[in-house]
Design a binder for these strands. Structure first.
Lengths: 192, 192
DNA sequence: TTCATTTTGTGACTTTTATCAATTTTTAAA
DNA sequence: TTTAAAAATTGATAAAAGTCACAAAATGAA
């Protein structure tokens, strides 16, 4: 348990001024969890009661539209993962979150998260930093989706999120880019 | 000055537990400003040093891509407006912000904003609420842009942001939806 | 009101991307 | 290693949206 906690505390320390000691002091708040490839961390309609700090593995966040799965985000090693709106407001989520590889992560419940944020300025500032990052990520995503061609979107992904290209199948990348798998395949052929 | 401050304090009170007294106590932090239609609140390359609380008027936030103006957001009466990333990180902005009508708004500088957030839990919670709202707005925008047809995007705008349809010209709405003006015009014809 | 500017609308045509239907390649489980 | 399932590729065709050119309508300043 301690090694896993310390692993994730490295990441926390990059994002905030929270110390290893502060994490170990609140050890009971954190749970280490694992999921097998294909398992779900969250299903739509459920409230996202936990936020996860990923030690190992990748996830996709997707929602259904007309029976089709649309990927909206990929989360991997070192990312902090939740269904944002559902976690923050504790309302039912429209997101599904599924492990694409066997995964290990630390969870923190919403109520314990609130306690830490309220009692500890470092956790308050982490809470703010995480949300700021999410805003910037989403603004970039919206700009990409609103104005770029399929080719541009893929080329930008290559430059800006190469880990996604490396670890995620094109099958899942296509819907993340808002294009079909066939179009993505043709674009990839055209690039080489 | 006082009436304008109280006008904007109504909105602040909807979003947070900040009281009228707290605002009047920090009166020196706030400035009332006006802009004429067509004037810019922010130009790209500049740091967004102020956040604005809009009492009157509408604005568009846009960026240039290949010489073309792309609208990313419209702000109106009661909205809290900034170039998010630039304001938060005090880095040069890619956004331009222009008044589409004569406007009146209250500004708060970044340094004073930081002071208020650090010294007052209500301002801290307002800061968090504003950012949470921005995340939700951007997530919706990204989902719309990634998966909807031009018709669906316009119909959703009608339902979800009717104030935009009412107050903003189709000229500016088109690029906000990531479609051409001609396509928007044809869609509108087809709906009636 | 008049006149110039901006915005909206329309038609003809082009380009991009989606769709449908195979087929091949890759992956992973038995 | 074999084999079934999943993912990627390819071609033919259709649909959606973009582009270009111009006309009509609306707006706003003189």
């Amino acid at each position: 348990m301690k090694t896993e906690l310390l692993k994730f505390s490295n990441r926390i320390q990059e994002l905030s001024s929270i110390t290893e000691e502060e994490i170990l002091q609140n050890q009971d708040f954190f749970k280490i969890q694992t999921l097998k490839k294909g398992d779900h961390f969250l299903r739509e309609g459920k409230i996202c009661t936990n936020i996860a700090f990923i030690n190992q593995g990748t996830f996709r966040i997707y929602r259904l539209k007309n029976g089709e799965e649309l990927n909206t985000c990929f989360c991997m090693k070192c990312d902090v993962m939740s269904s944002f709106e559902s976690f923050v407001n504790q309302t039912p989520s429209q997101d599904n979150i599924q492990a694409l590889e066997d995964a290990e992560f630390i969870t923190l419940s919403h109520s314990n998260f609130i306690k830490l944020v309220a009692s500890n300025p470092s956790w308050n500032s982490l809470r703010i930093t995480l949300t700021d990052h999410e805003c910037v990520r989403l603004a970039n995503r919206a700009n990409t989706l609103s104005s770029e061609t399929a080719l541009e979107k893929y080329q930008n992904l290559l430059v800006n999120e190469p880990e996604i290209i490396q670890r995620i199948s094109n099958y899942h990348i296509a819907s993340y880019l808002g294009i079909t798998r066939e179009t993505l395949s043709r674009i990839r052929g055209q690039i080489k």
